[in-house]
Amino acid sequence: MKELEKTKRISIAAVLFILAVIIGLLTYKRPKNTYAINTKSTLEKLTSENYLVALNELNNPDYVLIDIRNQYDFDKGHLENAINVYAAEILSEDNIKVFEELKENNKTAVLYGNNPQEPNAPFLILYQLGYENIKLLAIENSYLQNKLITKNSEIEKSETDVTAFINESIKKANTAPIVKVVVAPPKKVITVEKKKKAPAEGGC
């Protein structure tokens, strides 16, 4: 009889185990959006592919303009034929459908905002989700008397040579070459320890 009790325990444990798995499977929701490419290949593509579009290239019939600013800005003025998809809602079902359709029709979505930085995040996220038909319009929008003015803007342009400016200021300040006031900020030596895996002891 003792043996019988033991088996009951086993049965209970087995039933619980199965129940846990079944409940897990039933309550499991598949994530709606999943990344198609990992960060490493994203980075590779980002640095090798040209994803920027300038204003004069816009007459390509495959390009569909997407305005990622909010409704208010969009109503105030937007580029011709642009669709408004607000950046924060870019992953909602309806909006994802828009991008999917564009992908199916072999069109390229061109995102733009008030400056090139604004569509950067939505662009990069959609890019990682596998929508490779996506580009970024490098423009700057501003309003002049309620009229939208759009001009090209170059990203990551070094506007001024800071070192030259500093040297210039030093030259201007002291014509006599007595001193160099280049306050060279202290160089920090940053040493990084290689990560070591802590050796663990297993005993059996």
Binding site: F17, G24, P31, P199, A200, G202
Partner: peptide, 25 residues
Amino acid sequence: LVAVIGVYYMDYLGFLDVNQLYVHP
């Protein structure tokens, strides 16, 4: 067996990340 099946089910359902588990060198 129970552990490995349970771990892989939990991994599949998103409760556990197998890649983060400690692997003995």
